[in-house]
Structures are given as structure tokens and as C-alpha cells.
Design a protein around this nucleic acid. Structure first.
Lengths: 157, 157
DNA sequence: TATTGTTATACTCTATAACTATA
DNA sequence: TATAGTTATAGAGTATAACAATA
């Protein structure tokens, strides 16, 4: 095998040879497909992600949600505002530290997620239906190795 | 192995279990890293991609460039304009069809690419240095399978 | 002093719709 | 009629900087 796994000799096929480029195309396609499901619920992938993160971490403060979403804390403000106005989550001053907001799903938020999660799982299963379970597992393992290594820069827990 | 390759029982770990989510994180991290190289050249990943595509397809028309970049043709106009003004590529009426622009790299454009491509390759090599050649090859094969299947929707050749 | 949320603001990216010139 | 490029415009997403409240 050559030094580079998929390096072309010319620049002719440089772009397709780049893992970063293939990652971008794949991510674009997945999100486009996901968006179609989320459209029915008037949500974006980011808002959906926020709901899932809050569900998994009740009482989370906004700064931490921003870190999880890889966003600035100011960018999270309108997202939270939108979800609060739709009564999908509550934003209350935390008793432990009254500077911070404790985020929690409402009953409606839980209900929405319960309806949504199976659909998102279906979307994933459909989108990756060309892959066997073993292949999906391996692709997932690759991506996690990549992301978990990078993640340490973004954690502040 | 269970029905889903990495399906959690609760929604607690839903997000990390989604391939789409892991793809997004990976893509974000790669582009962030790539951007640091491109900053020195005052380029974005998209502009770099445009240069490489034009280099690989001299005389390409803008509509095709837009299709390759997964963008609307109106979105490509300011990109091309910027690269033309920087004298990295030329935009001339095509003789065969005088509605369309034939895009070509200038000598400066070629020169820039020659300087840039090794750095981008280095970036890739460094970013994926935790992976063996075989693993990179396999990850690449996975992503290509995914993208080549999806690609047919976007081709118009 | 440092941190949390917020606001005001600006910038980038992208798409839609309408125009023009060619076909 | 249809297509290629362009323009004007608007929307989404994001970041930066400064502020008030709290630590």
C-alpha cells in the first residue's frame, strides 16, 4: 500500500481523495435527509440536538449546552428562546448558581421527543441501509475515535 | 449483534449513537483544522474546492461548478467573482455556447494550488494520523459508497 | 475579578425570484 | 421556450464585543 491511503498522483482527483471532502458530502446528505423529517415538526437538526442534549442532561446550563453544540453561548440564546416559546423546554434560574439557567424539557418536550426519536432512528436506518450492521458499527467506531480525540478541546467539565 | 449497530436503550445517548451526528462533528473538526491552513492564503474550504474543481476540469461552466459544490448557481457567482478579481482564474464566454462562462485557472492560480496542495495533504495526514493506512482506506471507502450513491441526484452530465 | 446570560450588531453563506442574453 | 449568468434581496446561522447580575 502507498504512503497515503488514497492519494492521487495528480490534482485531478484530489478533492474526492480527501477524507475531509467526503466527510462534508456525507454530512450534507445526511442532514438534508434528516431535515425532511424535522420539517414536519418545524425543527432544525440543531434544535433537535438541543432537545436531546437537555433531555439527557436535565438542569443543564446554557453555557454547557453551547459547548456540547460547539457554539458560542450567545448563539444558543435565540435557540433556547425559541424552544421555550414553543413550550418544549423550561429555562429557570439555578438555585446553586443564580447566574445560570437550568434547562429542562417540558411534558410537551418529552412528548415531542418520543414521537420524533423513532422517526430519526428510521431515517438513520434508511439512510445507511446499504451498510451491514458490522459496517455501520465500524464506521461509527472510526468517527468516534476521531471525535473523542478532538472533544477534549471542547470539554470544560 | 443487535438490530441497530449502536442503538442505545434510552435517549440519553441517542445523539452520540447517530452516525449523522458523528459525521457532523467530524466534518466540523476537519474543516476547522483545514481553515487554519487556508487562512494563510485568504481562502475558504469552498473557494479551495472551487479552484481544485476548475483545475481538474478546465473550461468548466459555472452551472456545473455549482452542481459539483452542491450550491445554487447564483451562490457561485460571488465566489467566481472573488477568484477572478484575485486573478486566480479566468471567466470567459464559451465559444460553443455563448451564454456560459468557461472557467480556467490562471498561472497564478496554478501556482497557488501547487503551493497549497501539499499543505492540504499534510493537514489530512496529520488530522487522521491516529489511523493506519488501511483504516483510512476503509473509512474513505465507506464514505465514497455513501456519497456515490447519493451523487446521482446531483449529477446532470 | 471571573462567569452567565443577554443584547446589539455584523458577517458569511445560501437560496429565491426576476432579469438579460443567448440558444 | 429553455438555459446560463447575473442581480437584488432575504433568511439562517454564527461570532464578537459590551453590559448587568451574580459569584
Amino acid at each position: 500500500m502507498s504512503k497515503d491511503a488514497c492519494a492521487p498522483q495528480t490534482t485531478k482527483d484530489l478533492l474526492p481523495s480527501l477524507l475531509g471532502y467526503q466527510l462534508r458530502l456525507a454530512q450534507l446528505a445526511v442532514f438534508e435527509d434528516l431535515q425532511q423529517i424535522l420539517d414536519d415538526f418545524n425543527l432544525t437538526p440543531s434544535l433537535f440536538g438541543a432537545l436531546v442534549i437537555v433531555d439527557a442532561n436535565p438542569g443543564l446550563k446554557q453555557t454547557q449546552l453551547a459547548a456540547d453544540l460547539r457554539l458560542d453561548r450567545s448563539s444558543v440564546v435565540p435557540m433556547v428562546e425559541r424552544l421555550v416559546q414553543r413550550q418544549l423546554l423550561t429555562r429557570e434560574r439555578a438555585n446553586s448558581d443564580r447566574r445560570s439557567n437550568a434547562l429542562r424539557l417540558t411534558a410537551a418536550g418529552h412528548g415531542l421527543l418520543q414521537e420524533l426519536v423513532p422517526r430519526v432512528r428510521d431515517h438513520e436506518a434508511r439512510f445507511f441501509s446499504a451498510f451491514s450492521d458490522a459496517e455501520k458499527y465500524q464506521l461509527h467506531a472510526f468517527l468516534r475515535r476521531l471525535n473523542d480525540a478532538d472533544q477534549q478541546d471542547h470539554q470544560q467539565d
